[in-house]
Every structure is written in structure tokens, then in C-alpha cells.
């Protein structure tokens, strides 16, 4: 019972959070959010873990590795990805991922070139993690927002 009340409060907080963000988005600003499939076991991911994930390093949840999907559906996302998520230049990012594959057999993030393709990858894999404009995901019940990554 107590658990149910806590769950309801949590949902309410999310509704308020989304509402505020959506209002903000409607006013012309843009917000980038980290997203997973709605039933994903992932609850939270700090910025260091997000950086590790998109550099191809293993990040596990309940013993299973997460699968990063780089959103390349919008050219505006690339500089934000490099500056805010992996914090390095494109050439350094290329080199870092190459080194990871060569030394450890790490997997590079897969890429999606359209929102539809990205959503399909998220729907198909409960361990997939990506980032999207909030406006692309705000009313989608199949996708859950983990955190805000960037806002202008």
C-alpha cells in the first residue's frame, strides 16, 4: 500500500516535471533528454556514466550491459553530443572509440539517422539508451525520460 502511494507520488512528480518542460519547450527553447524504453530497468544514470556509455565503455544494470544509441536525426545534436555528453572533439571521440574496440572489443554506440529509426531501436531493446529532443518524446507512453542532458 505504502509502495503504491510512493509510486503515485513519483508519477505525479514526473507529470509536473514533463508539464513544466513542455511549457518551456513551447516557449521556443529546446531541451535534450536521456530516454529509455518505458519498461527499462534503468532508473537513473549520472553524467559520468552517461559519458562512459556513449564512449563505448561497459555500463551494466542488473548484470546486463546498456546499449547506447547515438541520435543523429538532427545536425544540431552533434555539437551538443560532443560538448555536453562525451566532452571531446569529433576526432578525439573517433580515436577513443577506435581504441576501445582495438583494446577491449568494446562496442561503439549504434547510430539512428531519424527519430522513427531511433524509436524503433528503443522499442526493440529494453537495454537501449538514447537522447532526444523533449518535444519528440513528451507524449510517448512507450518511452521514459531518465534525465535532462541539456537545455538552452
Amino acid at each position: 500500500m505504502e509502495c503504491g502511494v510512493l509510486l503515485s507520488i513519483r508519477r505525479l512528480i514526473w507529470v509536473i516535471f514533463f508539464g513544466l518542460l513542455t511549457v518551456n519547450a513551447g516557449a521556443g527553447s529546446r531541451t535534450l533528454v536521456l530516454v529509455v524504453r518505458a519498461d527499462s530497468k534503468l532508473v537513473d544514470l549520472d553524467s559520468l556514466a552517461v559519458r562512459k556509455l556513449f564512449l563505448g565503455l561497459p555500463v551494466l544494470v542488473n548484470g546486463s550491459p546498456l546499449h547506447p544509441v547515438r541520435n543523429r536525426s538532427d545536425a544540431d545534436l552533434d555539437p551538443i553530443f560532443l560538448q555536453e555528453i562525451v566532452a571531446m572533439s569529433q576526432s578525439a571521440y573517433d580515436r577513443q572509440t577506435l581504441i576501445g574496440v582495438n583494446r577491449q572489443g568494446w562496442l561503439r554506440p549504434t547510430e539512428a539517422t531519424s527519430v522513427g529509426e531511433l524509436l524503433n531501436q528503443l522499442y526493440a531493446d529494453p537495454n537501449a539508451v538514447s537522447f532526444m529532443w523533449l518535444t519528440d518524446v513528451a507524449h510517448n507512453p512507450k518511452v521514459r525520460v531518465i534525465r535532462v542532458l541539456w537545455g538552452d
Binding site: S64, H67, V101, L107, D125, N127
Partner: peptide
């Protein structure tokens, strides 16, 4: 678990 691969 889904099967993933990487080729270099």
C-alpha cells in the same frame, strides 16, 4: 539478450 557485434 540481443546479439550485438562490432567489426573493425
Amino acid at each position: 539478450e540481443p546479439l550485438k557485434y562490432e567489426f573493425l
